[in-house]
Design a binder for these strands. Structure first.
Lengths: 154, 154
DNA sequence: CGATGACTTCAGTGTTGACCGAAGGAAAGG
DNA sequence: CCTTTCCTTCGGTCAACACTGAAGTCATCG
């Protein structure tokens, strides 16, 4: 007997969460992301997420707050409804990735400062210079790359 | 009275270590990297690092092992010397950064699997598709970008 | 305005991981 | 071979953090 689609999606969500857990996002946060990417309908309340993902209300609350804060999830409130609805903000994923790339390139400011401290001693600066050049190149190319990024299809 | 160059370099090493600590590299590992980038002479033994960085021999050993493993530091042994010498391997920094970029783009395999699970339901796949396209684009552009990287000057 | 429902906050728990320092073991040299 | 030096391994400590569940807060509705 074959495994149902929903079951396989659950497994996929778990893999998805595991990946981002390695990047420092709490497991439950990753589960929320994965779930909100594929659930139907697209909007869920905190209570629903708590039940679906079998996580405490506290964890859901904390992680939703974090995800809304970084922009990956959008919160919507409606008058006449106490329960807020959360949905994925897939458009923001681009900036999310961009921040990561910037974080990598930002080492350049460090190597740059280091080079300044070693000015006057080119011999000693050689090792740092190699690294500095690498990050300098990245700091130029990554923003340029980003500008070439096509807008996501409607 | 002005602060000596070595003192400022110590502060720089600390900032350097702090940056990589945020990326998951232990503080002491980051200190070793920063120190080996600017020390004179370029090679140091574990004992020297332990003294300079005021870290236990155990921590130095563990972190050196890790850094040698990821290729950022090179270990050299010489006959007639019990103490191994460690030095920065600045050439390897490029691969180090490349691994990070690959890690980011690797989400594409995940989104790809997800898209397959949702095939037959384009409506529901829309959110994931946006994310999948982003990572698909990255997976194409990042390797291409890397090929354009100039060799580091001698 | 009390009751209900829905989040948020917070104290407590468990786990993970960095760090230390002592004990162990290999290499050089007397 | 015994000593010294150097490194690695390992148990133990400590701090950080994810997670839980209960208490608190706020809005809605009868």
């Amino acid at each position: 007997m074959s495994v149902g689609r929903e079951t396989r999606l659950s497994a996929w969500i778990e893999r998805f969460a595991a990946h981002f857990a390695e990047e420092g996002i709490p497991l439950i946060g990753g589960r929320i992301l994965g779930y909100l990417l594929v659930c139907q309908p697209v909007e869920r309340t905190a209570a629903e997420l708590s039940q679906e993902l079998e996580a405490s209300s506290g964890s859901i609350s904390t992680n939703l707050k974090y995800l809304v804060n970084v922009g990956l999830v959008t919160k919507r409130t409606r008058r006449g409804r106490q329960a807020a609805e959360y949905r994925i903000n897939e458009k923001a994923w681009s900036e999310f990735v961009q921040r990561k790339l910037k974080a990598i390139a930002s080492v350049q400011t460090l190597t740059d400062d280091g080079m300044r401290l070693l000015s006057g001693d080119p011999e000693r600066a050689m090792r740092l210079r190699t690294v500095d050049h690498l990050y300098g190149w990245l700091s130029e190319e990554l923003p340029a790359l980003w500008e070439r990024k096509p807008a996501s299809p409607k």
